[in-house]
Write a protein that binds this DNA or RNA. Sequence first.
DNA 1: CAGACATAGCGTATTTTATACGTTAACCTC
DNA 2: GAGGTTAACGTATAAAATACGCTATGTCTG
Lengths: 246, 246
Amino acid sequence: MSDSGTQYNPSISVDCVVFGFDGKNLKILLIDQNGDSLNNSKLKLPGSLVRKNRDLDEYADLVLKELTGLDNVFLRQLYTFGSADRISLKRDREWIEKTYSVSIRRIVSTAYYSLIKIDHSNEELMERSHNARWYDVSSITTLALDHYKIMQKGLDVLRQELRFNPIIGFELLPEKFSLRNVQNIYEAITGNKYDNRNFRKKLGQAKYLTPLNEKQKGVAHKPAVLYSFDKEKYFNTRKEINLFYI
Amino acid sequence: MSDSGTQYNPSISVDCVVFGFDGKNLKILLIDQNGDSLNNSKLKLPGSLVRKNRDLDEYADLVLKELTGLDNVFLRQLYTFGSADRISLKRDREWIEKTYSVSIRRIVSTAYYSLIKIDHSNEELMERSHNARWYDVSSITTLALDHYKIMQKGLDVLRQELRFNPIIGFELLPEKFSLRNVQNIYEAITGNKYDNRNFRKKLGQAKYLTPLNEKQKGVAHKPAVLYSFDKEKYFNTRKEINLFYI
DNA sequence: CAGACATAGCGTATTTTATACGTTAACCTC
DNA sequence: GAGGTTAACGTATAAAATACGCTATGTCTG
């Protein structure tokens, strides 16, 4: 990290689960450290040890900013992983000790999840400076350290959140999107399939979706009207959900 | 803590938000360290610095076990508080340094929440060995350090959880309870009021509630039938909730 | 340039769930 | 035994979820 001044705390780190959406599938931003002789040549989550006397939240922000060049992205705490055996592999330990010039024992890592509009992300910068690329979430079966477990937790929380807070979905969509895009994102995250006619009927009730005078172009079927998401209306018109399940 | 052998990590702690229910109101277990000349004479959450190379989860369990004498209680991670200015008061810092014989800078604290059946808890032990007592959640307006904020986060999460996972409610109820007790717990946690006739209609659909051949005694009104919670049926009969809100 | 094809987009019928509220039952206290 | 209090059952209406038929409008292909 470019931050300096204070030392790293050898027992505290942050890791970021960064989600994106390409209109069809859910994506995750991962770092490939192939070519580093000490590492285990697996993909890993972006993250860092935390410098002493630094806010955790602020540090997660910093990691993301440096990685993507993006500011003010959606970023929220996910979970803290604190098993004593998190770093069980010797080569993992050595890689961390070499990278940060500290001697480590157990590292407690607080994971964050971030939602990015892929069309805003600077993919060149990501690739050039961090070997970071978007991967299909469904294609990932293993990651370095306990990062696969962290990713799964991220998916769990994303699923839960989406049920009550649809804004989660719109954080992933570009400024202009079709109702089909929205359905795709719901299906990608929840794993359910929805009847397209009923799905759009439901969306039709939402006051925060503004139809634009613009349609899809170049698709081999009837082009869909594009919509934009009205954040202000979203927060003003959403009614309190006074409901529970038995 | 009775644990020994390894040193405390001066930058990692756990705090526990312990909820209970007395049939009517939501309670929280707090420690009163009045009489300690260094502390700020406010109530605080039970918690502890974590020894090096110890699981966070395991340590939260340990804190609870020592406090309440209870084993296998419901315990789940809540949130991690990692602002650089968490311990802004000098006397708080001094109290911690004295108690654990370590020199501290910023402490990252992972909070857990626990749900206790009050009738199982050993109140004498709690009071004798830790000055811990049950307080009405609604009566608490301030706590030591950032513990009030942590309690609020606990309440938030409890509210969220209860919507989808009613088991949360039954963790707080004794083995035998009335439907009214269930309604009270829902109202205490969510802050909503429910129509009693509709509420019990909804509960009537739940397969996991077993009516017992037993009624309330000594109440100045028609005595209610008592029920027990069937954990197995709960997990077997609950249908997947395939629903979202716009 | 006609017809196939694919998704957008509108509508209707049915079932399920939520909400509102009337009424009787069983215990206690005085 | 009258009055107070909550339990327990029932009915009627409104709202939401679900299932599914059908037309519209673009591109692609022969």
